[in-house]
Structures are given as C-alpha cells and as structure tokens.
Amino acid sequence: MTLRWTSRRVPRSTLRTQLTLLYAGPFLVSGVLLLAVPILQTRRSVPVGAPPGLGTDFPPGPDTSRVLAVCAVALAVLVVVSIILGWLVAGRFLRPLRTMTATARDISATNLHRRLGPHRRAGEFTELASTLDDLFARLEAAFASQRHFVANASHELRTPLAATRAVLQVALADPGATVDSLRAACRDVLALGGTQESLLEALLTLAGGEQGVEHREPFDLAVIARDVLRTRRTDGVAGTGSVEVTGAFGAAPATGDPRLVESLVANLVDNALRHNIPGGRVEIATATTSRGARVTVGNTGPVVPPDQVERLFEPFQQLGGQRVRRAAGHGLGLAIVRAVAGAHGATLTARARPDGGLDIEILFPGAFPEAGIR
C-alpha cells in the first residue's frame, strides 16, 4: 500500500498585504505597551488608608477594571483602523508600480519601441522606469539585429544557391559528361560553397556586433592591427602588386571583445585594399590619445562624394546607390565596422579625401594602462 502525501501550496502574500501588516504592526506594539503601563501601575499601587507593611499587589477595583476594558477596546479599534489605513496607504503607494507593470507588460507584448519615460515621482520609480527603458532598448536592438540578419541572409544567399543548383543541373543533364567536366562542376560548386560560407561568417559577425559586447577584456589595438596586416601579407593580399601598405603601430590599450575588434580592423584593411587604384597606398596607424585608443586606416581610391560616405556603411551598398557587385566582395565590411564600433561605444569618423579614397578613424574610450595589456 502506497501512501501519497499531497500538499497545497500556501499562497504568498502580496506586497500590499505585507506593507499593511508593516504599517499596523507598530500601532499594535505601541498600544500594548501603553496599556501595560497603567496595568503595572495599578497592581503596584497602595490604596489610600492601607496599613503599613501590606503588600503592594492588590486586585484591581471596579473603576480600574472598567478603565482597562475601555483601553483594550480602544486598542482593538485602533488596530482595525490602522489595518484599514495601512491597506489604503499601501494601495496608494503601489498604484504607480502597478501602472508601470501593466505598461511594461504591454510594451513587451506589442511594441518595444514604446518607453515608460520619467515618472512624476522622482526617486526609485524614476530609476526603475529608466532601467526598464534601457532593457527595452536593448531588446529592440536585439530583435532589429535578428530581423536584419534574416533579411540580409535570405536575400544574399539566394544568388549562390541558385548558381549552385544551375551548375549541378547542367552537369547532370549533359549526356556526354566526362570525368573532367564533372570535376570542373564540382570545383564550381566548391567555389560557390566557399562564397556562401564567407558570406555567412560576415553576416554572423555583423549580427554579433549589433548585439553588443557582454564580456570585456583588455587588448592592444597595435597588436591586433599588426597581426591583421601580417596575415594579409602572408596570404599575398597586402604588400604585393601595385598597392603600397604602410603601418605605424603605437601602443593603444583598450577593453572589449578582441575577436570583434580584430574583425573590425580586418574589414577596414580589406576595404582599403579592395577599393583602391593601381599605384595607390594604404596607411594604418594606432595610437593612444587623451580621449582613448585610436586606430586609423586611410587609402587612395575612387573619389567619394561627401554625401555618399554615410551610405557606404549600410549593408550591401556601393557608390552610385546600387547594391554591391559580387566581385567587389559581400558589401558588409564597413557595416561590420560600424556595428562593432557601436557595440564598444567607440566613435567612428569617416572623411572622403578630395583626390579619392577614405580616411576612417575609430576611437575607443576608456584606455587601460599599458601595464594591463599582455
């Protein structure tokens, strides 16, 4: 025989009930203490005309008992009144909190763009509203980043997927296909797969940059920029051909996500190399200023109208208001730069050179002392 014990969960008291008891409690304790004083005095008093040497403890007389009864009734009435007043005061005090809760629930369910705004009661309610507004802003940014990622991925992956399908269909439909033609088709498919992989990596980096930095650690921009340039030279991207690359790497300590910052610097360098001219130049420099750690990348290239500079930091954009050509890259480099800079609270400044090209500066705030960089 198995015995099963079932227990009901005791409902937790609400905050209003707790505040009501907190208000009524001092009234009850004070009343009991006030009632105890006359009781003790009555029991220790000596009646008038009592012979000397009698004890001091006498039973209370009729008048004293009547007074005590009245005091007890008054105490009970005061406790009831204090509970009622405490309930009303607690409700009045918690009304703004209930309003904020209902508004926050409606915002989270319908429109994250709304905000609670400053409360008319300064103090804790205003701080709570500000904290919730900051939370809604981060949630809105995260959802916007997710929507942008899905939209960009669905649009940009459609072309390589269609091309992959076309290559495979042509290879399968060819009755005279040979080993060499099938190998060529496989090489084309692998190349298209590599394009899709690099595009997905760029989209993931863009989405990660837009979501912000959760864990910060110290790093040195000089070390990151030097490693990026060394990798580009090893791969044959920089330092060969007709584009001259120079670097001046001064210590520039900062804090953040080194992986995202490395992607920022790499995209700056790749953009400067890709959009250049024969015989052009690329200059990379890092330094520490009074405002923080700075990295600058300048390059020669086609003339960029000043009113077109801001638009170049949008995804999949190029000069002339058209979407970027596949041969010119994915068109996400500068968008990644802006997202990573914004996630780190860095200031991005881009200027068009009169003779062609761009000068881009990223200033990271809150530099750490050089001894903190390893």
Rank of each mutant, 00 (worst) to 15 (best):
A171S: 15
P258G: 09
H113P: 00
L319N: 10
S7V: 12
P218I: 05
V295Y: 07
A266M: 07
A151C: 05
Q196I: 11
R9H: 04
A151P: 08
F368A: 11
G53I: 01
E361M: 04
P258H: 03
R4N: 06
L168D: 09
P118L: 01
A341I: 05
G329A: 10
V73L: 15
D188G: 03
I284H: 12
V297P: 00
P175T: 10
A341C: 10
Q211N: 03
R374C: 03
F93A: 13
L348E: 04
V228S: 04
R66H: 01
P38H: 08
L116F: 08
V77P: 09
V282W: 02
F136G: 09
V189T: 13
Q211S: 05
V189K: 02
P160T: 05
F136L: 07
A166S: 07
E210N: 13
A287K: 03
L168N: 00
G208E: 14
V245A: 05
F368Q: 14
V269T: 11
N271Y: 10
A184G: 03
Q211C: 05
V261R: 00
R325I: 01
D235M: 12
L348W: 03
V67T: 06
L68E: 12
T6C: 04
A352S: 14
F364H: 04
L260V: 01
V261L: 02
L15D: 12
P258N: 02
L204Q: 14
G292R: 00
G301Q: 07
H113F: 06
Q41C: 08
M1N: 05
G256M: 06
V167H: 00
S145R: 06
I336L: 03
L135Q: 13
Q146D: 14
I362F: 07
T6I: 14
F249G: 01
L132S: 06
A341R: 04
V77T: 13
T300V: 05
A343K: 01
S82K: 11
D133R: 02
G117F: 08
F313R: 08
G86N: 11
I362K: 02
A109Q: 09
A343G: 15
T164R: 04
P11E: 07
A272I: 07
V304P: 05
A327D: 12
A122V: 01
E156V: 00
Q196L: 15
V150R: 07
L334V: 13
A171Q: 06
A72H: 07
A251K: 00
T288Q: 13
L182R: 02
S7H: 00
R92S: 14
P26I: 06
N276S: 15
L139I: 07
D235A: 13
L34S: 14
V223Q: 12
R311I: 10
L260M: 12
A163Y: 01
A328Q: 14
A104P: 03
R326P: 07
L21W: 11
L112P: 03
D235N: 09
